[in-house]
Design a protein around this nucleic acid. Structure first.
Lengths: 146, 146
DNA sequence: GTGATTGCAAACCTTTTGCACGCCA
DNA sequence: TGGCGTGCAAAAGGTTTGCAATCAC
């Protein structure tokens, strides 16, 4: 059953919340569950709509604020599309992005070589580097056909 | 005098406009001049405010629409900040970005090694790759001090 | 019990759209 | 002159803020 698979990451999530002095509310759990399910880079609105099937009374603000909060305590990342709504990245494996100019889709890809590119010492000294990523700006398969 | 230095890129700009069937208006010239002056990654509002000293009657919409148009004909790029306004990149040399989590600043840097990273054939086949870039997510020098 | 969190509403900011006037080609 | 470009205004979309009621601890 699905519940058993879910148990473990949610306990881990609850720990993270307590560490950050955040209360573990049903809303936050539901949002977190939605995030680990999502394969793409959802906007607050995407998460809100998916989650309404489970919690019909949750408000958009709660979702939006919670995603903001999660990004602050390091549960998710914020990534940007070319326009429109802020988008979130629940994928914490080392990965890179393909970004389509036309439709704005962001697609993850993995590449060991890119993972291990060496950042120059001068930059390491000057900035507190949290993460690095290769971004490919493309016209994606779908948009190419149009 | 400054005007002589400006002459050449502006003629080149005028050519690009004509190639794209765009009329060469005083507003477009002023916006272009502002762009080649700017070292950072201005938002439409940034450009609008800087340009008002030269053209006090220009409207924000014209600036915004023109920047959009310029990005469509390949005079500038659109890059994203973590939130808020869309930002433009007039730097057409091959470069990479340092992106500050806290203040959202985007800083260009140059690195021959990063320029020449090899994109796997499988991705090249699947996507029409326009450009590639390494993005370092950091806490910048300013924000580090806070 | 108490302070954090939620839901609602309003405000704010940015981008988009529609339209009439004016200007470049 | 004709059609593109501009400026203005309104609308739309997303985010932020303030506040009262509620809930987790």
């Amino acid at each position: 059953m699905q519940k058993d698979e879910m148990q473990d990451p949610i306990l881990h999530f609850a720990d993270k919340c307590r560490q950050a002095n955040l209360k573990v509310t049903p809303q936050r759990i539901a949002i977190f569950k939605q995030l680990i399910k999502s394969e793409n880079h959802p906007s607050a609105d995407n998460v809100f709509k998916s989650i309404r099937t489970e919690l019909p009374h949750i408000s958009f603000d709660t979702v939006n604020r919670t995603l903001q909060t999660f990004s602050e305590i390091g549960i998710i990342d914020i990534v940007e599309s070319y326009s429109g709504a802020r988008r979130f990245d629940p994928n914490y494996k080392n990965h890179h992005h393909i970004h389509c100019f036309k439709c704005g889709d962001i697609i993850d890809f993995y590449n060991d070589g890119f993972d291990s590119i060496e950042i120059p010492e001068s930059l390491k000294k000057k900035y507190n580097i949290i993460s690095k990523r290769v971004v490919l700006n493309v016209v994606c398969s779908k948009c190419r056909l149009e």
